[in-house]
Design a protein around this nucleic acid. Structure first.
Lengths: 218, 218
DNA sequence: TAAATAGTGTCTCTCAGACACTATGTC
DNA sequence: GACATAGTGTCTGAGAGACACTATTTA
């Protein structure tokens, strides 16, 4: 074998090297109306059942662009900032041939899913995602681990909420993400240093109006 | 465009989809004799300078196998458990063509590098890795972040040390990884619950002999 | 008024950080 | 003995968890 490494610039044409197909699959997470962390699934084109949205990488395309294209095409959803989770590289994982799949996570506000296809998409709780093909169940598990780590210390870093929110809304979002309830007062004291008050308050709610906050970073 | 998603089983042949070349590049980390965290580099085959070891993925090969093959071939080092860091997917990152590179980290004991090629490999401190091509400087930064997170709570999870070690050896290894010095007593109290004493002690050292410990997990 | 939610005071427990002491080896 | 390193007791300050209290709104 005389293959040169990618770190070496040789005149050997790249077409000499074997090339796998490359796909992307995405766990798109959001919160539903009941403050549950849910994952977007799309109806499979052929055969029954549901799967995570995915697509093959086009020539010269970035992975993140392929992710957003698959979300647009399959679910009519505009994504924003997908993050890579892991490459699934088992040569036998797809019986049609040699396909690498790059799993991604994307997190969006619920209202960004308002336009989604109602017939061919569904939102399922991450803990009971239903039956899924390939490595899609693993991808969801990894996505949940990923977002839980991110939500451990910082206020809604992935913007499940808008730019302004009450501490109650923030806490409910964090409880949905990490899957357990949080102490109201401890949570406030932990988050308040990383927030800035807007001065405005809620109105029309049932109890005492709450202050509105913004993330301190911006 | 009528490309089917990877989640759909169609009869369309996979050869219809564009295929990038896929490479792996590895930041292999270890500790040198001065208890510094260092990264393995190999002399580039063509042109001057040094790079992280890498190779193109062979047909049907797993990414981890490609990583270990590149370490064996380029540095005469047997790796063990590479972990993925990130896919670099800029279509213009390699001017020879469309090449995706999957960055990896591998962590080994110093004695596993005893057999390495002395002329064509070198070990450089992770903080001053020298001039490197492509995204290799980024890969080192990511590898260091990765291993620092892993060493925050657990005793030498990546086995930079052997199976038995003193708390001094463990602390020096952790200091090298995280890049700052640690409190001797606090470190002991944090780690001891995650260790089991072997009953044996060191001998021949300069001060009081130290107890030998093993990781509690196994 | 009651009910609901927001915000805060305060106690306790744990733990990291720091310092100092004791213990046990080599030279 | 001096010196070096291992191991531990203990004080302090910060912060999480828990509870209870006050504050401000709607119905």
């Amino acid at each position: 074998m005389n293959l040169k490494s990618p770190g070496d610039r040789t005149s050997r044409p790249l077409t000499d090297y074997p090339r796998p197909s490359v796909a992307v699959d995405t766990a798109l997470l959001t919160l539903d109306a009941d403050h549950r962390l849910v994952v977007l699934q799309v109806r499979r084109n052929s055969g029954r059942g549901w799967a995570l949205p995915g697509t093959f990488l086009h020539k010269g395309e970035r992975l993140a662009d392929a992710v957003n294209r698959s979300l647009q095409t399959k679910a009519n959803v505009r994504g924003l900032r997908p993050h890579q989770l892991q490459v699934f590289d088992d040569p036998a994982r797809d019986d049609r041939g040699w396909v690498l799949s790059v799993a991604h996570i994307e997190v969006v506000r619920a209202d960004q899913l308002a336009s989604r296809f109602t017939e061919t998409t569904r939102l399922m709780p991450v803990e009971q995602p239903g039956r899924l093909p390939y490595d899609h169940a693993d991808i969801i598990v990894q996505a949940v681990e990923h977002i839980r780590a991110r939500y451990a210390d910082d206020p809604d870093p992935d913007r499940l909420l808008g730019e302004e929110f009450t501490l109650r809304e923030l806490r409910l979002a964090h409880e949905a993400v990490i899957g357990e309830s949080l102490q109201r007062d401890s949570f406030r004291r932990a988050m308040e240093p990383k927030l800035v008050a807007t001065g405005a308050t809620t109105t029309g709610g049932r109890g005492r109006p709450a202050e509105l906050f913004r993330r301190a970073d911006g």
